[in-house]
């Protein structure tokens, strides 16, 4: 139920995100999901890709700093209130969330990627709360 995520350090300078995306495009990496955490000083680009290890190496070969981490993916109905329900489950179980990002996968279906501070506890709570957790394979095949 854990999905590998790549986090890439970007310095706060024009064109850096573009450079990273160019590398991925040249390597024919298809990005399943993407989010950018931005501060005034630097950014962290987070990616879900079908071949995380190969993609990490590709980026590192181009002098990017990349870390592999894990997130949880939950399927939601693409309708108001569905994200609230998932956050509610985590809240009731006292699970802190570092960050999340969501995307619409196809019609009527959205996926939220969650990074709980403790991923095991997060998964446990979500499963008990009836959330629809999906596997890495399912995301890659979207």
């Amino acid at each position: 139920m854990k999905i590998k995520q790549l986090s890439i350090f970007l310095e706060n300078r024009k064109g850096r995100m573009r450079k990273a995306l160019d590398v991925l495009e040249k390597g024919q990496v298809s990005i399943r999901a993407l989010s950018l955490a931005d501060t005034s000083d630097f950014g962290i680009l987070r990616l879900i890709v079908p071949e995380p290890e190969g993609t990490k190496k590709l980026l590192e070969d181009h002098d990017f700093i990349v870390k592999t981490g894990k997130v949880v993916a939950v399927r939601m109905e693409d309708e108001p209130g569905s994200l609230g329900k998932i956050l509610g489950i985590l809240d009731e179980n006292d699970i802190n969330l570092s960050y999340l990002y969501a995307f619409v996968a196809k019609e009527d279906m959205a996926i939220v990627l969650l990074h709980p501070e403790n991923i095991e506890e997060g998964i446990g709570a979500l499963e008990r709360g009836g959330a629809d957790l999906i596997s890495a394979q399912e995301i890659y095949e979207l």
Partner: peptide, 18 residues
């Protein structure tokens, strides 16, 4: 220059390192 040892996926920690 940032290094793999220094880099963290979390903004909070990276700000802390800085």
């Amino acid at each position: 220059e940032t290094s793999p040892e220094l880099f963290s996926d979390e903004v909070k920690e990276l700000v802390g390192a800085k």
